[in-house]
Amino acid sequence: MDKTSIEIAGGVSIGFTGHIHCLDLERIDSMMMEIGEWIEEEAGTLMGHIKMSLKTKEEGITLNLTDLSTGVEHHGDLRNSKSANFNFMVATLDVDKSKLERAIMDAIEHHEICLDIDDSKCFHKHHHYE
């Protein structure tokens, strides 16, 4: 059977949706940077991206990390919201998927990101911090 283009490139992707409480964009940026740094350590470089969209009825913002030297880019605004629904995804190359899942969970815990994850076989559903 022919390989797909994703398989040829060595692509790995993880994503989940949910609701985030106690919204703190700085902490989310740091969480994304930690994931990026883990990927760089594992694969030698970050070839891919880490993205998160956060939205409420009135506002929305997309966070995007493709290069550690430039940091997390913000597109949109969410200044008036304390919580939001989110979509989160990582697409990258040359890392082990289960280790990446672990790295994502570790980053969420390290930065005390308070969130509920929708139905997911890979992740614990609730992360709440005092």
Binding site: I6, G11, I14, G15, T62, G76, N87, F88, M89, A91
Partner: peptide
């Protein structure tokens, strides 16, 4: 198109 199960760009 997004290779993973969850898309972000579509929302944007």
């Amino acid at each position: 198109n997004e290779m993973g199960t969850i898309g972000v760009d579509g929302t944007t």
